[in-house]
Simulated scan of single mutants.
Amino acid sequence: MQAKSRASLERYLHYYNRFANHEQSAKLDRDLYYRTEKKMEEMQQTSDLSWIEVQFLKKAVDTLVQCRTTLKWTYAFAFYLQKNNQTEIFEDNQRDLEMATEQLSELLEKPIVRSQIADLRQLVLDKSVYVGTRREILLEDTTKGLLEGRWEYIVSIK
């Protein structure tokens, strides 16, 4: 009985900690908007990019914030799922989105180096598109699973 209680607590903490980590990251991302605006100004001053052309940074932060919110709530959803092949696919999609989101976050934290602006711009654009696509795939598959009754839960949902 004690082993079962311990396993239940560890399971809860696993999902809760991931939920809380994304919640905390989302709060830190608010400060990222301010830093990104400064980077956008710096890019304009050190390159021939216009204000419109540096908007990719703000859009990338928007995508990052959306993904963190999605990830946060996927952990709440996953907590209630019964383990099976469907949840394995869900968790693979979740893990892929999480890794890509962290990679995008790292790109957005990189300092501006004048000679590397074009490369950074392309990397951020590519990763933003990838992350946005992975988010859509996760959300669409989750929704489809709900509509099809594919998900099994560890609690009775009525």
Rank of each mutant, 00 (worst) to 15 (best):
Q2S: 09
Q2D: 12
A3Q: 15
R6H: 08
L9P: 00
L9D: 02
R11G: 00
R11V: 00
Y12V: 04
L13F: 02
Y15I: 02
Y15F: 15
N17D: 08
N21A: 13
H22Q: 07
H22L: 04
E23S: 11
A26Y: 12
A26I: 05
A26G: 05
L28F: 04
R30T: 03
R30E: 12
L32A: 06
Y33A: 00
Y34V: 15
Y34C: 01
R35E: 05
T36P: 05
K38R: 14
K38M: 13
E42H: 11
Q45R: 13
T46I: 15
D48A: 05
D48S: 12
L57F: 07
K59E: 14
K59F: 10
R68L: 04
T69N: 14
T70D: 07
T70I: 14
K72P: 04
W73Q: 13
W73S: 05
W73R: 09
Y75S: 05
A78D: 15
Y80Q: 04
L81R: 12
K83V: 07
Q86C: 01
F90V: 01
F90H: 12
D92K: 07
D92M: 01
D92P: 02
Q94A: 03
R95A: 12
D96W: 00
L97W: 07
E98I: 01
M99G: 01
M99L: 12
Q103R: 11
Q103A: 14
S105D: 15
S105R: 15
E109A: 13
K110F: 02
P111M: 00
P111S: 02
P111F: 02
V113H: 08
R114T: 09
A118K: 15
L120W: 07
L120P: 04
L123R: 13
V124R: 04
L125H: 03
D126S: 11
D126V: 01
D126L: 04
S128K: 08
V129L: 10
Y130F: 05
V131Q: 10
G132N: 12
T133N: 11
R135V: 01
L138A: 07
T143W: 10
G145W: 08
L147K: 13
E148T: 06
E148S: 09
W151M: 07
Y153L: 05
S156T: 11
I157N: 03
K158W: 04
